[in-house]
């Protein structure tokens, strides 16, 4: 019996989403009365620190960091059998989602994706909840199969220190050659990927043009936030596609979301309505976004944003 966590490291190092998955695996293992094991594949700098967040053991499989769901699923399937895993945990990331479904099919296992609750033991299995209908409701599922699979919503389970760093043990599993050849990986270097960001400053058509984004970047810089945008802005290439949040873009759950010059169409809200706190700045007091906001400022963003930036800079200097 064990909880097996896939601690992903696609760019060669362990990121926050992998730490969150381990933190979740640890809490699940506590609830289930077992231990949490982390598995890394390929280069995984920082993997030993997963012990801090609750991994009793950290294993590494020598294989390529180039992601191929078929190959990785085979490795994880072997690991799940070898370690007797009852629950397999993934981040709700592009690779985690691709693998979770494969593992569920491999074992005919119950699967819950983007879980928002730690498992509770019930009904001879586990109960796990998730957001459904684009954040308009939650659903709770019973997982009663021998093996169970879960992906966890980002920014929801904070990695906290519960243990000490551990030595990485290598484990030999069969890594077949895949049929996918990765040619290029282009990620924004240095910046926190949007789905992992705790603080997000997002702007929309109210900005009037890409040349005006300086004030948004300044505000994000002061806060240490990631920048995002609405769909119309990405569609006309004012901002890069990967910044687009909403139903057809990225769904995010930051602790603080600033929506600046975004009206708040239902498709946009679907991607951000699970943010903990939403601040809306819009000159139109009737903008639908105010209904979903915790704090609102009615005013011209070109006036409000620099003032907010100054107030934040002053706050940061004093705290």
């Amino acid at each position: 019996m064990a909880v097996l966590v896939f601690a992903e490291s696609l760019t060669g190092s362990i990121k926050k989403i992998a730490q969150e998955a381990v933190a979740y695996g640890y809490q699940a293992a506590q609830a289930m009365g077992t231990e949490c094991i982390a598995l890394t594949i390929g280069q995984a700098d920082g993997a030993g620190d997963l012990g801090l967040y609750g991994a009793a053991k950290v294993y590494n499989v020598d294989a390529s960091n180039d992601f191929d769901a078929q190959v990785y699923a085979s490795i994880l399937g072997q690991a799940a059998n070898k370690f007797g895993a009852d629950l397999i945990v993934f981040a709700h990331s592009s690779s985690g989602k691709s693998l979770a479904g494969r593992l569920a099919a491999r074992f005919d296992a119950a699967l819950v994706t983007a879980a928002t609750s730690i498992p509770t033991v019930a009904d001879g299995g586990l109960h796990i909840s998730k957001g459904v209908f684009s954040g308009k409701a939650f659903a709770t599922y019973a997982l009663k199969t021998d093996k169970k699979v879960v992906t966890i919503a980002g920014n929801t389970f904070r990695p906290t220190e519960v243990g000490a760093a551990v030595a990485i043990e290598s484990v030999s599993l069969d890594a077949a050659t895949g049929r996918i050849k990765v040619k290029e990986v282009n990620t924004v270097t240095g910046a926190v990927p949007l789905p992992e960001a705790e603080l997000v400053v997002s702007a929309g058509r109210g900005m009037k043009g890409p040349e005006n984004w300086g004030i948004i970047e300044e505000l994000a810089g002061t806060l240490g936030a990631a920048t995002a945008c609405s769909r119309p802005v990405a569609d006309v290439h004012w901002r890069p596609h990967h910044e687009h949040v909403g139903q057809t873009g990225v769904a995010i759950r930051p602790t603080l979301y600033f929506a600046i010059g975004i009206s708040g169409a239902i498709q946009h809200l679907a991607g951000v309505n699970q943010s903990k706190v939403i601040v809306v700045i819009n000159k139109d007091p009737e903008a639908p976004f105010f209904k979903a906001a915790d704090y609102g400022v009615v005013g011209d963003l070109f006036d409000v944003v620099p003032k907010l930036n100054a107030a934040l800079a002053k706050f940061k200097a004093n705290n």
Binding site: G101, R102, A104, A105, L111, T113, A251
Partner: peptide, 15 residues
């Protein structure tokens, strides 16, 4: 857009 699970295609590929 209702369950946002991204589950079925991965499962089909495994099967």
């Amino acid at each position: 857009i209702d369950y946002n699970g991204s589950e079925v295609p991965a499962m089909v590929s495994e099967y």
